[in-house]
Write a protein that binds this DNA or RNA. Structure first.
Length: 563
RNA sequence: UGGGGUGUCGCCAAGCGGUAAGGCAGCGGCUUUUGGAGCCGCCAUUCGGAGGUUCGAAUCCUUCCACCCCAGCCA
């Protein structure tokens, strides 16, 4: 909403193309994940850009799996990727493609390149290739096999395909310029021998194309107009262009943008997979993970993620977006959509001494004040209630206007209650809070116009359902967890308190029929989603995020002021 | 010390030679049966630094500085 009026730099490029008719005014993008991990919020940015641009310009966006490295890829990942994109709310319709479907065509194009004298079979091994490549400041030198006759190249390439050579013994290389200041142009490898089973093509191939070869060709085959990728591929663009030019085939425009970095999180597939494999988290969908599946399980609505992606903008400068910005959109969406209920996380008992022992009243409570169509529900009220421990202070500090001895406060939707005293155990801990209620204030308003500065949430003891609540906090305690001291890795920055489990929480009975994935606002506390680990007799709620809490802020500012 | 990029408010980010949008955060106030939400207001005389061109520069030029990416048969 906020940035809708501004066109990002990619749109300006497209506008230019539309003006000079570069692509016949068509816009056709693609989202090309490698199925070697689960999608994360950084991918969501890319998905939002690619599908968003297509939508904006009345074009199309393909889903394409960039599956050119069988040793890292798996169908588990392709399934999760499809699920996540759909969940985010994007639709590739029937346009789902796999780079592996183009292997035959890639092979033919390689032959074409060889026939033009622009590629050769190299017998150098990996280490030799590295040595011949030179350094950042020194030119490389030509491979002794660079001048191999075309016929011989063709013959060897066919033998490579037929499995006549062992892994690593030969490569196909583009013949470009070993002294180019751009290392990508120093005769890049475009095919390597890999006797590995591919998750889709099985054992059909034992030579696999490199990214630099597969990517431009895939884009070309699919008639992609704008091939959008991240900044680190900028140096690859001359190569991308070189291949398409030499092959004389459809030439899409590569455009690079800055990948997303989020504070207090890590968005590197390599590092995320390590968290999973080392069981530091419970899996790819652990609610602390920045993965799409983790966020889904955490209770983040897809709309919030989309809004976030649309509002961070698209640019070419590296940035570190504050996680609070994401959380803002989560709260904004959940505030509008989630039903309110009452539940107590850290209970303490309140006894209303002037309320009859066996009486129960069913009190009307609004389901969502932000949505007038959501109606009301009945909440049982009785003599004994649970309230939040931190809503009571025996000796209230300044600006604390919740319950304390002698003070009257409103119990939401119910009555005004006045604290008359407390019961303590032998160690002096408060075990019960004693109150009286004013029957005249039913519903929460005093007929004489008396006001309450605080409104507390509560749950009737005998009607309460006991639940387990998982409180999630930041997974890392450093703004940029990848910054570490010499010899340490990013796991040193893990937050030891990223998960706290509360087993003694009480909630109003109306959640009896809640289903996995249902999200509620527990009034005054935050948003909570029913987790898949729940059983009928033990419901588990994950805290998605707290409500904004100005009381906490006041306390924090006070304690800092005293330091 | 080669090449490619980037530097505009605490965080994102517009700006494209005509005199610094917007969002988040923050700070005030109003309002409120969630210390939630909502509403109103405030919040960059200055655009990495220094020179220059121009009536006029964040935008053009020169120069310096800082940060990011590249030496996988990964993507």
């Amino acid at each position: 909403m906020k940035n809708e009026t501004n066109k990002n730099f990619i749109m300006l490029i497209i506008d230019e193309h539309n003006e000079n008719n570069r692509f016949n005014k068509q816009v056709h993008t693609r989202f090309p994940p490698e199925p070697n991990g689960y999608l994360h919020i950084g991918h969501a940015k890319s998905i939002n850009i690619n599908f968003g641009l297509a939508k904006e310009y009345g074009g199309l966006c393909n889903l394409r799996f960039d599956d050119t490295n069988p040793s890292k890829e798996d169908t588990e990942y392709v399934d999760s990727i499809m699920k996540d994109i759909k969940w985010l709310g994007f639709n590739w319709e029937d346009r789902i493609y796999y780079a592996s479907d183009y292997f035959e065509q890639f092979y033919k194009y390689a032959v074409k390149l060889m026939n033009k004298g622009l590629a050769y079979i190299d017998d150098l091994n990996a280490e030799e290739i590295r040595k011949y490549r030179g350094t950042l400041t020194e030119a490389g030198k030509d491979s002794p096999y660079r001048t191999r006759p075309i016929e011989e190249n063709l013959e060897l390439f066919e033998k490579m395909k037929n499995g006549e050579f062992p892994d690593g013994s030969k490569t196909l290389r583009a013949k470009i310029d070993m002294s180019s200041p751009n290392l990508n142009m120093r005769d890049p490898v475009i095919y390597r021998i890999l006797h590995a089973k591919h998750h889709r093509t099985g054992d059909t191939w034992c030579i696999y194309p490199m990214y630099d070869w597969a990517h431009p060709l895939s884009d070309s085959i699919e008639k992609i107009t704008h091939s959008i990728c991240t900044l680190e591929f900028k140096d690859h663009r001359p190569l991308y262009d070189w291949f398409l030019e030499k092959l004389e085939i459809h030439h899409s425009q590569q455009i690079e943008f800055a990948r997303l970095n989020l504070s207090y999180t890590i968005l590197s597939k390599r590092k995320l997979i390590m968290l999973v494999n080392k069981n530091i988290v419970s899996g790819w969908d652990d609610p602390r993970m920045p993965t799409i599946s983790g966020m889904r399980r955490r209770g983040y609505p897809p709309k919030a993620i989309r809004e976030f992606c649309s509002n961070i903008g698209v640019s070419t400068s590296n940035s570190l977006v504050d996680i609070e910005f994401l959380e803002y959109f989560v709260r904004e969406e959940l505030n509008k959509t989630s039903p309110r209920i009452m539940g107590v996380l850290n209970p303490i008992k309140v006894i209303i001494t002037n309320y009859p022992e066996d009486k129960v009243e069913y009190i009307d409570a609004v389901n969502n004040p932000e949505d007038t169509t959501s109606g009301t529900r009945k909440v049982p009220f009785s003599r004994e209630l649970y309230i939040e421990r931190e809503d009571f202070m025996e000796e209230p500090v300044k600006k604390f206007y919740r319950l304390s001895p002698g003070r009257e406060v409103r119990f939401r939707y119910a009555y005004f209650l006045t604290c008359t005293g407390v019961n303590k155990d032998e160690k002096g801990n408060i075990t019960e809070i004693l109150c009286t209620y004013d029957p005249e204030t039913k519903g929460g308003n005093a007929p004489d116009g008396r006001r309450s500065k605080a409104t507390l949430h509560w749950v009737s003891v005998k009607h309460a359902k006991k639940i387990t609540v998982r409180l999630y906090n930041k997974l890392f305690n450093q703004k940029d967890p990848s910054i570490t001291e010499e010899g340490e890795d990013f796991t040193i920055n893990l937050n030891p308190r990223s998960l706290e489990i509360l087993n003694e929480c009480y909630i109003e009975p109306s959640i009896e029929n809640a289903k996995t994935g249902d999200i509620y606002q527990l009034e005054r506390l935050g948003y909570f989603v029913l987790d898949k680990d729940s059983t009928p007799d033990n419901k588990i709620f994950n805290r998605t995020i707290t409500l904004r809490d100005t009381w906490k802020k006041i306390q924090k500012n006070n304690s800092q002021a005293h330091k």
